[in-house]
Amino acid sequence: MSNHERGAELIRLTAVDFGYTGTPILTGVDLALHANDFVGVVGPSGSGKTTLLRLLLGTVRPDHGTITRRPRVAVGYVPQLETVNWNFPVTVAECVLMARKQRGLPWPSRADRADIADVLDRLGIGHLARRQIRELSGGQQQRMFIARALLRRPRLLLMDEPTSGVDVNSRHDMLHLLSQLNAEGVAILITTHDLNGVASHLPRLVAVHRRIVAEGPPREVMTSAVLEATFGAPMEILEHLGMPVVLDTRRPHMSIAERRAS
């Protein structure tokens, strides 16, 4: 897809380096996100996927390089479910309301209540508005956080492992929902470790391992050479129904050096 087809550029990272307390996490990152993008970021744990989201959000600044943003572009963020305190005593509606900047009032306005009801209904969880968040299923939890992000009317939605911990049906529903949002004009970037269930179904992938290893459609990124450079282990790629399928060829209890030598 050309940049023209992808729409206006929203954010661009140019030669970005970033690290924590002197330890490099990402180096030489060049990445642009456009208005029509639906992108998956793949890589092993510790490869810099979440750090990349933080750079895009602006919660951390690069050590070197530049990040340019289209003026007044609202960005929504959906965290990993594992990072949330689900015992916090709050209802679904109250959690979604937290996305709104408070105006000094201890209660939501009529417009706030209408907007919350609309976004919850749109995501199919309007009937859960008064439910405590700890009572939700994994798929419902994800929809609640997407609702909270959408309340800001974002042009770009960033999601950290949105299908982690959900069953196959919920994963399918999530991908369908995100495709609908993307078709309605929301650019989406998600991180995922699920190569076959998620990554292979996305229009565009970015493979990350402390740098951008490869970028493009799944057929170009999900290759044996790219995935070995990204995950540090050989993987066999097959094709099924026109999509790449990854087979992990590693033998258990072998180090990476042993696997490469075998």
Score class of each variant (00 low, 15 high):
residue 225 A to T: 15
residue 107 W to M: 15
residue 212 I to A: 03
residue 94 E to L: 12
residue 126 G to W: 04
residue 83 T to E: 15
residue 69 R to G: 05
residue 201 H to A: 09
residue 56 L to P: 00
residue 188 I to V: 06
residue 244 P to T: 08
residue 108 P to E: 00
residue 33 L to V: 15
residue 6 R to I: 02
residue 155 R to W: 08
residue 21 T to Q: 15
residue 79 P to M: 07
residue 222 M to K: 02
residue 40 G to S: 04
residue 139 G to T: 03
residue 33 L to Y: 03
residue 179 S to D: 06
residue 248 D to F: 14
residue 7 G to F: 13
residue 225 A to V: 13
residue 4 H to V: 14
residue 100 R to L: 01
residue 52 L to K: 07
residue 111 A to H: 08
residue 69 R to P: 00
residue 244 P to L: 02
residue 65 G to W: 09
residue 199 A to L: 08
residue 120 L to G: 04
residue 152 R to V: 00
residue 177 L to P: 10
residue 202 L to V: 00
residue 229 A to F: 12
residue 3 N to C: 05
residue 203 P to H: 06
residue 207 A to M: 13
residue 8 A to N: 05
residue 205 L to C: 03
residue 154 P to G: 01
residue 128 L to I: 12
residue 227 L to P: 05
residue 84 V to G: 04
residue 39 V to P: 06
residue 166 V to F: 04
residue 221 V to I: 06
residue 39 V to E: 05
residue 105 L to E: 14
residue 116 I to R: 12
residue 184 E to A: 11
residue 118 D to S: 14
residue 78 V to H: 03
residue 116 I to D: 01
residue 215 E to T: 10
residue 35 A to N: 01
residue 62 P to R: 08
residue 69 R to Y: 06
residue 123 L to I: 04
residue 236 E to C: 12
residue 36 N to S: 10
residue 147 A to S: 14
residue 68 T to D: 15
residue 202 L to C: 03
residue 15 A to Y: 00
residue 59 T to C: 01
residue 53 L to M: 15
residue 224 S to M: 09
residue 73 V to A: 06
residue 11 I to K: 10
residue 159 M to K: 11
residue 71 P to W: 07
residue 35 A to D: 05
residue 211 R to D: 02
residue 27 T to A: 10
residue 60 V to M: 11
residue 246 V to C: 07
residue 195 L to D: 01
residue 242 G to S: 11
residue 123 L to K: 14
residue 129 A to R: 15
residue 239 E to R: 05
residue 106 P to M: 13
residue 34 H to W: 08
residue 100 R to Y: 05
residue 17 D to S: 07
residue 181 L to R: 08
residue 202 L to F: 02
residue 205 L to G: 05
residue 166 V to P: 05
residue 128 L to A: 11
residue 50 T to W: 05
